[in-house]
Design a protein around this nucleic acid. Structure first.
Length: 502
DNA sequence: GTCATAATAT
DNA sequence: GATATTATGA
């Protein structure tokens, strides 16, 4: 690594001298035909090789296609289909290319926005030849910094550079794939448009699409390629899906381990339950879960982050209700996006007329609020917790993932883990009762292996959730104390007839 | 297509 | 440092 010094540097310099500024390949994007023409003339005048495009989407397509290699992108800020900032952002995400913004607007904010989004320069229109003469420097300096960053690495012969601003590429150990991409790169000395292997962030939207696809296919027939097809999302690969699917399955296994009891029997009875449930709770089943909150963490499939995402006021609303001996339904209120409606009111409307679910629920809660010894003891613990003891040990029961550092065999843990989880459900619930938990500890409540996970699995279509009546949501959520209910909820995803409404 | 595990992010 | 998430390779 350190052995590189002179030689490579010299080569870089040579390359730079050979190629810049002449022949710099510039992709210019502007929806204004006249501006574009002027720009083209100027660029040619500067001995660059301009390619002119009138809209950002086309530009992006060209860049993604990679047929032509570009060294730099010049883009207008204001464009109808996709503005320059968006284009800038996407380029930053997917490839390493210097982007220069063009605008008639010399507003400081706009400039800052451009720079913050990763633009390497911001030029005012009309652009002058002198300014264009210098743009090659951005390419050169970027190239240098790339080379330097490569010098710090062993034998890493590809052209990838720093992580992008919005997504980081992993560019360390790459094996067979690496060869492929470096071969591609050899087609041209300009590697600028090489795509980064971005790390996919599974946002709620993405996950919803994923679930939607699974629902369409049926969990038993599901396969990465099919999902990929149905999801129809650019930039996603089969591998991305496979990885996510793997995680999803692990999750399902964890919350509904087949190791407990007779799997087929369980399945059948749950299916019956499911039908009943679907009949009575046609809406709840899909709405229980999703909060429509953009980022799911730490337990994506469990609803863990839902409370984690709550604002302070929402959290305190939870606490308030709980502390006052409220029923479960109350503290669940904040799970819904509709909580804001209640933020200022004492009692959200709660209806509990959902037959079996509510009976179960009421049973559960009457027991728990009337103070059995078990509950009392747990409450005691709770109070300790709320006095500052970290409940993280409890949390681990809920957030426990079978994969530590990838080395453990997930399936081995499942049986025992989930059993523990099940046992912990009550304590989890109790915890929530009395303490003024921090959001973090609160989070532990939701992913109960029972309905909690059902809630987690169900993250579908936030819009639906948003429209949902709080009472519906509550009824759905309230289902989770019951194991049976839990099963049937889980079966919404497992059964073939799990169809998402809407 | 699935799984185990490595790499990376939090 | 532990854990979660995602990528990768078999």
């Amino acid at each position: 690594m350190a052995a590189m010094g002179g030689n490579q540097r010299q080569m870089m310099e040579d390359a730079a001298e050979d190629k810049f500024p002449e022949g710099l390949r510039v992709l210019a994007v502007d929806n204004d035909r006249v501006c574009l023409k002027v720009l083209e003339v100027l660029l040619r005048h500067c001995k660059y090789q301009p390619t002119m495009v009138m809209d950002a989407k086309t530009a992006l397509k060209m860049l993604r296609a990679g047929k032509e290699q570009f060294d730099l992108v010049l883009t207008d800020v204001r464009m109808p289909d996709m503005d320059g900032f968006k284009l800038l952002e996407l380029i930053g995400l997917e490839m390493d290319l210097p982007v220069i913004m063009l605008s008639v607007d010399c507003d400081k904010k706009a400039v800052m926005k451009g720079i913050n989004h990763g633009a390497c320069d911001y030029l005012m229109k009309p652009v002058h030849t002198n300014e264009l003469k210098n743009i090659w420097q951005h390419v050169e300096s970027r190239r240098r910094s790339q080379a330097i960053s490569h010098m710090g690495r062993d034998n890493d012969d590809d052209q990838r550079v720093h992580p992008g601003t919005l997504a980081k590429n992993k560019d360390s150990k790459r094996k067979s794939n690496e060869k492929d991409s470096s071969n591609e790169n050899k087609e041209s000395t300009h590697a600028s448009t090489t795509h980064k292997n971005t790390r996919v962030k599974w946002t709620t939207d993405l996950h919803n699409k994923f679930l939607e696809a699974i629902n369409q296919i049926g969990l038993d027939k599901v396969a990465p390629n099919k999902i990929l097809e149905l999801m129809n999302v650019d930039c996603l690969t089969r591998h991305n899906i496979a990885s996510h699917l793997q995680k999803y399955r692990l999750y399902l296994n964890r919350v509904k381990p087949n190791s407990l009891g007779d799997a087929s029997e369980r399945q059948n009875s749950s299916m019956d339950n499911q039908r009943n449930f679907m009949h009575n709770h046609e809406h709840e089943r899909w709405h229980v879960s999703s909060c429509g909150i953009p980022s799911w963490s730490p337990n994506y499939f469990g609803a863990t982050s839902q409370l984690g995402q709550l604002t302070d006021s929402q959290s305190s609303l939870c606490m308030g209700s709980l502390i006052h001996g409220g029923r479960m339904s109350r503290y669940l209120v904040p799970h819904t996006p509709d909580v804001r409606r209640f933020a200022g009111s004492e009692d959200p409307p709660i209806s509990l007329d959902n037959g079996i679910l509510d009976d179960i629920m009421l049973d559960e809660f009457s027991t728990y609020s009337s103070g059995t010894s078990y509950v009392d003891s747990m409450r005691g613990k709770l109070m300790e917790t709320s006095k500052g003891k970290s409940p993280s040990n409890l949390r681990s029961y809920f957030t426990n993932t079978p994969s530590g550092r990838g080395s453990s065999a997930p399936t081995n843990d499942i049986g025992s883990t989930s059993k523990t989880e099940t046992n912990m459900v009550n304590s989890g619930r109790t915890i929530s009762t009395g303490s003024n938990l921090q959001t973090d500890s609160f989070v532990t409540l939701t992913p109960m292996p029972g309905g909690g996970d059902a809630a987690g699995i169900l993250p579908v279509q936030e819009s639906m959730v948003n429209q949902q009546e709080p009472s519906d949501l509550l009824n759905g959520i309230n289902a989770f104390p019951s194991d049976d209910i839990t099963n049937l909820l889980n079966n919404d995803f497992i059964g073939e007839d799990a169809v998402m409404d809407g």
